[in-house]
């Protein structure tokens, strides 16, 4: 058994496609029309055959309160790994991305948290060299 896809629940798929590709730098892998929505996945260009991220419509009535409650407590919906967090922070800031947590050391990792503009907080993590 393997994990081939994981998802974030987004308010608007087109807006999410723009943010996750143009801003974060992922590439669209699958874009299949499914009724009024799409099966829309992105992958990291560093690992195009790796686990896909599904930008999943968050239309179910349970989703908005769930997402809002996570944001109130500052809890990220998911987490991405980077090699150089400070460089990535500077790059994303220059693209207008807003961060709820600036880069900081947390034990074995260095981390930051950003707003994906689609209703989620996303954690970026850099593993520290032991």
């Amino acid at each position: 058994m393997r994990i081939y896809v994981t998802s974030v629940l987004v308010d608007d798929q087109s807006k999410a496609e723009d943010f996750y590709t143009r801003v974060l730098g992922f590439k669209v892998k699958h874009d299949v029309p499914l009724g009024e929505h799409r099966w829309l996945t992105v992958v990291s260009p560093e690992n195009p055959e790796g686990t896909e991220l599904l930008l999943e419509p968050g239309e179910h009535p349970a989703v908005p309160p769930y997402k809002a409650a996570l944001v109130v407590d500052g809890i990220p919906a998911t987490s991405f790994q980077v090699d150089n967090l400070d460089a990535e922070y500077d790059r994303l800031r220059s693209l207008g991305v807003s961060f709820t947590v600036k880069p900081l050391d947390a034990g074995t990792v260095r981390m930051a948290v950003l707003d994906d503009t689609c209703g989620n907080l996303i954690q970026l993590v850099q593993m520290k060299v032991a």
Binding site: D73, G74, I75, V101, L104, D105, A106, G107, T108, V113
Partner: peptide, 20 residues
């Protein structure tokens, strides 16, 4: 600090996990 930061940093700095 948000609740998330408090939890994440308390684990990192005290080595003791606290539930949210």
């Amino acid at each position: 600090q948000s609740l998330f930061e408090l939890c994440a940093l308390s684990v990192a700095q005290d080595g003791k996990a606290l539930s949210r």
